[in-house]
Simulated assay, not measured.
Amino acid sequence: MCGRYVMARAVGDLVAELEAEADASLELRASWNVAPTTDVPIVLERLIDGAVHREVHVAKWGLVPGWAKDPAVGVRAFNARSETVAEKPTFRAAFKSKRCGVPVQGYYEWKKSPDGKTKQPYFVHSADGSLITFAGLYEWWKDPAKEDGAADQWLLSCTILTMASPPDGELATLHDRLPVPLSPAGLAEWLAPATKETGPLLEAALAEAWDLAAQWQLDPVSPAVGNVRNNGPELIEAVTL
């Protein structure tokens, strides 16, 4: 699964790495302890006058489907299982036409001690510090309590897809679920707004995921990351066990 991650890139750096564009007024809050229900950057593609535009937007982490009566639904929908994403009512519409990438600098996972009494957090990240982009979905939800045209009438939200962890290796010892990473080429395919055959698209993403994840580095970090109130670059500094 993925329930806590790091995104502290400046807008300009994020746009450059993703080869995207962003509104001049877009603001991102650097965070070394991103938690569900907070605002996060996503990257998506739209067809505008026949041309594809790759854009960075800010969305609430926890997908709220268009039919939801209350946005609180998103609290439980920050991850979507790849095995059931095509059938689950919360995700199936977004899977067909609203796919996005969720860029991260790394994510946290907790490993149980042999006696099961404590958990050690690890920061999972690319060895060279480059961005990892997870396969995600996004949705727009209209608040019926707001007047038409109100600035806050529409809520943009997102979720991160997960899959089974590799059967062996260090990642397998952390958790049985893995957020689905995308290569640059895989991201381009995943985002393509004209693609309607989502089954093969998902299969292609899953097929390369374990190889991409095998290149990640796992560093033990301070237990301080367990408290969402703690938020600073010291959280990703490796500690000696």
Rank of each mutant, 00 (worst) to 15 (best):
T159M: 10
S130L: 01
F78N: 10
T195D: 15
A77S: 14
L171P: 10
D211M: 08
E208M: 02
P184D: 06
L182T: 05
E208W: 00
A135R: 06
C158E: 04
A93Q: 15
D115P: 07
A194L: 07
Q120R: 15
A188L: 11
V73L: 13
K111C: 08
A192G: 03
R76Y: 02
S113V: 12
E139H: 03
L212A: 05
T118M: 13
F78V: 00
V124F: 10
T133Q: 05
L137P: 08
K112D: 11
L191W: 11
K117Y: 01
A164F: 01
V180W: 10
L137C: 12
E170D: 13
R76C: 01
G149E: 04
E197D: 15
G74R: 10
G149L: 01
Y138L: 01
W110I: 00
E170A: 09
A205T: 04
W141S: 02
C158D: 07
E208F: 01
T133N: 03
L131E: 08
R92V: 02
K119D: 10
G199E: 14
P121C: 10
G129S: 01
Q153P: 09
D152E: 12
A86S: 13
T173D: 13
D211F: 02
G74H: 06
E147A: 15
K111F: 05
W210S: 10
K96R: 15
D115L: 01
K119G: 09
G74P: 09
H125A: 06
A127F: 03
D148N: 11
G129W: 02
P103C: 04
P89Y: 07
K96T: 12
A194T: 14
E147T: 13
R92I: 01
K98C: 13
V85A: 15
T159S: 14
M163D: 13
W190I: 01
Q153Y: 07
P200V: 00
T133A: 00
A185R: 12
Q120C: 04
D168K: 11
G169Q: 05
R177G: 12
G186K: 07
A127V: 11
V75M: 06
G199N: 06
D128N: 14
L191Q: 09
C100R: 04
D128R: 06
K142C: 08
S183T: 00
P200F: 00
R99Q: 08
D211V: 07
K98E: 10
D176R: 10
L191T: 12
P144I: 11
G116T: 01
S183R: 00
P179C: 07
L155D: 07
E203M: 06
C100Q: 09
L161F: 03
A188R: 13
W190G: 05
W110M: 02
L171T: 06
Y108N: 08
P114D: 03
A72R: 15
V180A: 11
P167N: 08
F91D: 05
E83A: 13
W190K: 06
L202H: 09
P181A: 03
A204Y: 04
A72G: 11
F91L: 09
H175Y: 06
R81A: 13
